[in-house]
Design a protein around this nucleic acid. Structure first.
Lengths: 139, 139
DNA sequence: TATGGTCCTTCCAATCATGGGAAGGTCAAG
DNA sequence: CTTGACCTTCCCATGATTGGAAGGACCATA
């Protein structure tokens, strides 16, 4: 055996689960893996690099379709860094939009909860807020 | 015809789409709707109240299973407000956890993008960061 | 060599909330 | 009676990931 890894070993080495490695191959995010005599997938150093790249991009929240583009740019040594930066900043904007949205939810909810004594009594401004729309984010 | 609304009218009145109203009924979040002669669903004032409650709770990010509990508490006049408050604050925590996570992603990505000139040249710290793990959130 | 344990294979299904669309029934107005 | 807007049910798709079943392959040790 040379320096090839089984899918389980590649999973440990890259941080991507074996399940996901198969999935990424099936949707064409990864090239078809080499196979052993026993039909096991085999992974080399370059494959593990690819997997780690994907793992890091996922951990930054990039959707798989964007990762597909990032991989293509990564492999293309004639790429323009502007293209990469644009993908990154677009993603930052969508992250920040979601963050703002959730911050509004949390703030509205904390406001409602603040006025709720939270004991055994049935009186509850949270339910009232949900029922009437008072103290509700603009919508 | 009395004060009953069709599903489309109830959708407009509540902000919940007709598609979703049917879905909520199918998963037991809403009671089975009354039917007209022609088998159309009919909604009264109380149903629209329910739908608006659900719509507001969704807009605060509550998952449907929690909304199911909130509806039960809303209907139960012997509820303890502490139960409601607990559901609300648990949800606030999960919102804040997700917010923190996404803020870390955005910060790491902005850091990488900050060092990328973003022009026609191929040199790109963002791709390098993804490839090597430098400037990466603790993981 | 038999056997068990661990890895691998493929395929199918579930999550969560929502929406799209097909094929067909109902209803009001013209 | 036709037209068009609405309704019905049913199936499928999204995005990323995980779970499991059923079966084959590999390897160590007894």
């Amino acid at each position: 055996m040379n320096d090839s890894l089984s899918i389980g070993a590649a999973a440990k080495a890259s941080g991507v689960s074996a399940k996901m490695i198969r999935h990424y191959e099936s949707i064409g995010l990864l090239p078809t893996a080499q196979r052993s005599n026993g039909n096991y997938r085999l992974y080399g150093e370059q494959d593990v690099h690819n997997l780690r790249f994907i793992h890091r991009a996922r951990s930054l929240g990039f959707p798989l379709e964007t990762i597909r583009e990032l991989l293509a740019l990564w492999r293309n040594r004639q790429r323009a860094s502007g293209q990469v930066k644009k993908l990154a900043l677009t993603h930052v904007e969508s992250l920040e939009a979601k963050i703002r949205e959730m911050q509004e939810m949390a703030a509205a909810l904390k406001h409602l909860a603040h006025n709720c004594h939270g004991d055994d009594r049935p009186d509850c401004p949270i339910l009232e807020g949900l029922a009437t729309g008072k103290g509700h984010p603009c919508h």
